[in-house]
Write a protein that binds this DNA or RNA. Structure first.
Lengths: 189, 189
DNA sequence: TGACAAAACTAATTTGATTAGTTATTATAT
DNA sequence: ATATAATAACTAATCAAATTAGTTTTGTCA
């Protein structure tokens, strides 16, 4: 029999890889078990259900993105920080299409484990506070940024834009758009 | 036996209603057949597969939205037209969460039937052309608007924002943001 | 009215998730 | 070291749902 020495991490990594190779909806336990060299039912020692696994993958994705952004922002501030954060998110979505799908599809109202609240949100919030923006406006801005970024990544993922690099240009263009809006709010004060 | 007098339309309407009641991923042939008073296998006289049905529902949704927007824009122009178009889309997504999910999840690169290209895109494009915006910039703007609108609707759908009406405020706020950006582009010329 | 196509049916197959029940492995505590 | 408990694997069985096969009914139209 010989144990496979699995932990949640390894399972999520493997499931994530599988999801990235095909898609979140094609992710299945048979394949996953195969990749891990165990039988499908054995997965239930680690995972509640397939659906729950997809959910876990969503949480995992947000954690990863949060880490990457936090790391990328060291030593950067102001507009550059916003640009960089957006860029890192976009890169992550592009590199991990399956995980990104999970992030886009699964309810985020259902709370994530306490350790990892929405780090991305948190970071963007701080960037707003570092400026002179009313709390109320910051909430709006945050929602707008998140919507734009995730929406763009989703459309790009599903091939709504040509894959000739012009999409990336549009994306940055839009980020600057929004940043300009942020500046306008500052001036208003 | 007695025929049920079904057509694609009726099936899509019923499937759409079911999807709206639960979600696109919970949509299933058993329930659908039940609602239509036929046996599940009989559905295959009208539909290629469950997955294809979801895809059809996506196309159906875009058609509906296109119609509604076209209708809503009669006699309106300029910024108001943009605002109205965005509003109508948002309303549709809110009223038809299941169909909207299909619209958000399914590949749009796979072409839609010739009769109904992306009408929404088409309309927004014309709104740009009515202004003095370079073709190239219009492409960017379009992508940005689409990303924002769909992204926002998606996040709202999954409960990322509180349901107290403030989300709607944020949405409109963002639309004005983007419209301001459009104006900036005009001035640049 | 008779034949053909469409649309329904029932029965069977397939696939994949999940559950039940069992056994081997590892860790822990005497 | 060894007994015991917990964990993680296994096989076999169940269940649900989509799909396929093969048949019958119904409506249309020559």
């Amino acid at each position: 029999m010989s144990r496979a020495n699995l932990d949640k991490r390894k399972i999520l990594e493997t499931a994530g890889a599988l999801a990235n190779e095909s898609s979140i909806k094609k992710l299945n336990l048979k394949q996953l078990a195969q990749k891990l060299n165990i039988q499908p039912p054995s997965l239930y020692n680690h995972v509640q259900s397939l659906d729950h696994l997809r959910f876990d993958l969503m949480v995992y994705g947000w954690e990863q993105v949060g880490e990457r952004i936090a790391e990328a922002l060291i030593g950067i501030s102001g507009d550059d920080a916003i640009r960089r954060a957006c860029e890192v998110f976009y890169d992550y979505a592009e590199e991990n299409p399956g995980i990104f799908e999970a992030m886009a599809y699964y309810n985020r109202d259902s709370k994530k484990p306490d350790g990892a609240p929405d780090r991305l949100t948190d970071i963007l919030f701080r960037l707003c506070r570092a400026r002179d923006i009313a709390e109320q406006d910051a909430v709006h801005i945050l929602r707008i940024f998140r919507s734009y970024i995730e929406g763009f990544a989703l459309l790009a993922h599903y091939g709504a834009f040509p894959r000739d690099g012009s999409a990336r240009e549009s994306f940055n263009f839009g980020v600057d758009f929004l940043i300009a809006g942020v500046h306008q709010l500052e001036e208003k004060k």
